[in-house]
Design a protein around this nucleic acid. Structure first.
Lengths: 214, 214
DNA sequence: GGCGAACCGTACCGTACGGTACTGTTGATG
DNA sequence: CATCAACAGTACCGTACGGTACGGTTCGCC
């Protein structure tokens, strides 16, 4: 289970990516218990021997799955335009909706469940990996947006991480955990729009400058 | 696995409570994987046969553990005194600290991990049980506090659940999930006080009446 | 055509776990 | 003392999983 400290991913072959895809689908459908080496081999039409040659270990396979999924979600932003009070609010709401939809995704939920299940055992290697590749990545987008807002004189905050923490809490609250615990996520997806708007509204009341409430 | 819809708990015998205590300790120490029927029997100095007679099933044992732990945490409040801006803020900060400390507790983390691990399998029965007995219970305390604040003219909100959701998000953000993923909780426990104060401060800026900012 | 690497499919092994059955042993009751 | 219920301890069974080994097949390369 190599795991470079550098953000350079191991980059598996196309065939191996197909296998990881099958494994993810298997995990989503059947949960962690269904994710056996034999099951993955069957679902991906490959041999167990190849699995062990490619990923070394069951844990190696899990790590590879997380890395693979994270490499697909990779969020890009680059808000090059100049921000006004309206566009800042729009971008924040968009970010909030994207965040909620990512968190509610089948694969995201399954991987988080998997990592949490292993957290007590393996010294939380998968957990920190998920944290690093998942929230850190999407947090960079939010951080850039927040700093752009501050540069434009629309937001006032001291520590950027604190502000992001507040924004995250307002958007997500305990929704993520409830979904992880099995609460039907499909039922609340329709509400993401309103939830995002309310969270951003509250955030702007907390961190918006007087200039932004015009 | 009987599970009465009424809040009346099955109430096991003292001996069985001892067994459940051992099982919880075992779960906290070794994680879900260490929680085998033989291990529980050995740790509790009882026979596997008795385990199956008392709890019927491994799942029954898990349910019993959750119910048992929830019955111990049972939060009581009854803020009989009349609220001022200062005492409301104090009570909110106290609530926030209690909430963070409960969430960071060994047993709470272990049980949440357990329930999340089983969420995809058993139709989230354990998850909803944890939700019902855990957050619902502590939410009642917060709800009472919020309504008392509104009655005293210190808080302004339409929906109580919405306000509580916001308060919860401000206090916890993604801290709970990060701890569940294995991030060292001991390191951040010292920061709970400041975190609680900041969250309550933000909450009061959002929901406090002009009367409370005197 | 001959060769070797990669790989699929499958059989196999050791182990660990959930669940059951059986044999004492204790302790209360009459 | 006889009886009976509850229980500890243990042996046992079936199964399922992680990991390995091996025969057969494809495919590229000389």
């Amino acid at each position: 289970m190599q795991l470079a400290a550098h953000p350079h991913q191991p980059d598996y072959s196309p065939r191996q990516n197909d296998v990881l895809d099958s494994a993810l689908r298997l995990l989503v459908d059947g949960g962690e218990k269904a994710l056996t080496t034999a099951g993955v081999a069957r679902a991906a039409n490959c041999s167990k021997e190849s699995l062990y040659k490619w990923f070394g270990d069951r844990d190696g396979l899990l790590s590879a799955m997380i890395g693979f999924q994270a490499s697909k979600v990779r969020t890009f932003d680059d808000t090059a335009e100049t921000l006004t009070a309206e566009t800042l609010q729009e971008h924040l709401v968009l970010f909030a909706r994207d965040l909620l939809e990512v968190l509610a995704g089948d694969v995201s939920l399954a991987l988080n469940r998997l990592a949490i299940g292993q957290a007590s055992r393996d010294g939380s290697k998968l957990g920190s990996m998920l944290q690093e590749r998942g929230r850190r990545q999407i947090g960079k987008r939010a951080g850039a947006l927040l700093e752009a807002g501050r540069d434009a004189g629309l937001l006032v905050f001291g520590d950027r991480d604190d502000a992001y923490d507040t924004l995250y809490g307002l958007i997500v609250s305990d929704l993520h955990l409830r979904m992880l615990l099995g609460e039907d996520s499909g039922r609340m997806v329709n509400d993401f729009g309103r939830r995002a708007e309310k969270a951003v509204s509250a955030f702007l009341r907390l961190y918006g400058s007087e200039k932004s409430s015009a």
